[in-house]
Simulated scan of single mutants.
Amino acid sequence: MNKAILIFITFLTLFSCKKEIEYGANKFIVDDYEKWEKELFKYSADINDRPMMSNISVRDFVDELKADTTDKDKLDILQTRGETSNNWINENDLKYLISKINSKEKAKCVMGISSSNIPDSKEMTIGNQIISIIESYRNKEPYPREDCECKIYSQNKVDEILAWWKKKNGS
């Protein structure tokens, strides 16, 4: 990708979300917009450091989702490139994901490089991100399904997926 496109995408991202916006359960911020804008600009500098979804395993991706809990001012996002194939998740990956579905560990929001909103990751957990990944599998959709995966799910969704898992495995 040439520098002109990268600069355009960065400025589009930086200047398009100047106040808090809420779409469904996805929250987009900005309490201190200028601080987050600078952080995102710094973060977006090298696009080649972003995971290419077609080249990363499910387990490695979940590891990438873990947030840095030592820096309260850090923007907890993971910018990604591309999307997964339909066979990205296998049975062993599903078992692993199900084992982590209730994780309350702090996580990053997933943001495509062309996303124009800055997600609010304050309440994001690994469990919520796991649900988004499993939902893409259940719906036979590539992941990420949206420009920004930062949805907070209720316990009802966890129960629904666990019931689906139980039925899928005949237990």
Results as ranks from 00 to 15, higher is better:
D63C: 10
D71T: 13
D76T: 05
D159R: 11
L97D: 00
A67M: 03
Y137K: 03
K100H: 03
Y96H: 08
V110N: 06
I89T: 05
E135Q: 01
K140Y: 12
D76S: 14
K74M: 08
A107C: 06
K106P: 03
K122C: 02
S103A: 05
I161H: 11
K108C: 15
S54N: 11
R145E: 13
D76N: 15
I89L: 07
K72V: 15
N90Q: 07
V58M: 13
V110W: 02
E141P: 00
C148P: 06
S85P: 03
E105R: 13
V58R: 12
E141A: 14
D159E: 07
P119T: 10
L65T: 14
S116H: 06
S116R: 10
K122E: 05
T70V: 05
P142H: 09
L65D: 12
A107W: 01
N102I: 00
S114F: 10
D68Q: 14
S99M: 07
V62N: 10
I126N: 03
K106I: 11
E105F: 07
N102P: 00
S136V: 02
E135G: 02
V58S: 14
I113W: 12
I133P: 02
D76K: 13
K72W: 08
K104G: 07
E83C: 11
M124P: 00
Q129S: 15
D60E: 10
I161M: 07
E123S: 15
S114A: 12
K108A: 10
Y96I: 07
S85T: 11
V158W: 00
D120W: 13
G112D: 09
G112E: 04
S132A: 06
I101V: 09
N102A: 02
V58N: 12
